[in-house]
């Protein structure tokens, strides 16, 4: 261990090098332990506790919170929570898919722009990113207000009553979610598309490929790294999103994020909230695992 070695041009002993490495690692490790590992462990502990009469934590070990989550409540068996859980997954999937479908044409459009205006276009995509999401959600209130053409058109088609706004509704939730997550898909995808090797596209055309075949063999494999990052960055936070569905979906379209927020907020049932959080985290990890297994060789982040 005390043998002299040359490390990037420096003469040093292995022992000293190890000490220096630990010194550099310590702040990061402390940070992770303090703000990720410990709260995680506390969350696991709390999820097995119970609720007192006044919303305080009762340290009695039980699986009650988990059995309640899958439907065995005090009012008999109901699938409400499971339904909300699956609806959350569904909304996250649809949001991700639509964001991907919209991102491809958007990215190709921007990538085709001359270099001078390209970054202007990218900035336009990024600007909503810098705006608070509550403000963005309220902006949708305005757009979907009864006085504006969208709500009027829907009323004319008898989809909603005369003079009603288009929110709260599933449509409003999807609009809010997609506008929220589109940059998360578009930006990593753009970096892949900007570096696209167009000779592969030409080779596919030269070999009589249909547009679908060109996309599958010349474009998709090349953009997969950026696409993967975009999908992960979208689906994970989308599963736990609560501001947008709360404001734009209200009680009509509750997602798991809202349910958790409710437990820690008005219901004051920390233990149940922790259990739902654990369930969400496990689901997210499972979906990441499945995704990684399906796309072997693709680095997630």
């Amino acid at each position: 261990m005390n043998k002299l070695i040359i490390w990037y041009g420096e003469l040093i002993t292995g022992h000293k090098l190890l000490k220096r490495g630990l010194f550099f690692l310590t702040p990061g490790m402390l940070w992770l332990i303090l703000f990720l590992v410990l709260p995680g462990l506390i969350l696991i502990l709390v999820s097995f506790a119970g609720r007192g009469t006044y919303g305080d934590l009762v340290w009695e070990f039980s699986f009650e919170n988990y059995t309640r989550l899958i439907g065995y409540g005090i009012f008999g068996w109901t699938l409400d929570y499971v339904y909300i859980l699956f609806r959350s997954i569904w909304v996250a999937l649809v949001t991700t898919c639509l964001s991907v479908v919209l991102s491809y044409p958007l990215c190709f459009y921007i990538a085709k722009k001359p270099l001078r205006t390209r970054y202007l276009w990218l900035t336009i995509v990024i600007i909503p990113f810098w705006t608070n999401m509550v403000i963005r959600a309220y902006a949708w209130f305005l757009i979907l207000a009864p006085e504006l053409p969208f709500a009027k058109l829907a009323a004319f088609l008898k989809l909603i009553p005369e003079g009603a706004p288009l929110y709260p509704s599933a449509l409003a939730v999807y609009l809010g979610m997609i506008s929220m997550f589109l940059p998360f898909v578009a930006l990593p995808l753009f970096s892949s598309i900007e570096r696209l090797d167009w000779t592969l596209v030409e080779a596919a055309q030269d070999l009589y490929a249909s547009n679908f075949r060109i996309f599958m063999h010349a474009i998709l494999p090349q953009t997969l790294p950026g696409l993967s990052v975009g999908i992960i960055l979208t689906i994970v936070p989308a599963m736990g999103m609560f501001v947008v569905p709360d404001l734009l979906g209200g009680a009509k379209y509750m997602l798991i994020g809202n349910l958790i927020q409710q437990q820690f907020g008005s219901s004051r049932d920390y233990a149940f909230g922790a259990a739902i959080s654990m369930a969400l985290m496990i689901l997210t990890l499972i979906s990441l695992y499945l995704y990684k297994r399906k796309n072997r060789g693709v680095d997630l982040i």
Binding site: D197, L200, E202, A203, A204, D206, H217, A218
Partner: peptide
């Protein structure tokens, strides 16, 4: 008409 490209442009995933 078919082409042999300068960079060969083989599909890397096939």
């Amino acid at each position: 008409i078919n082409t042999v490209f300068q960079s060969y442009a083989l599909f890397p995933h096939l």
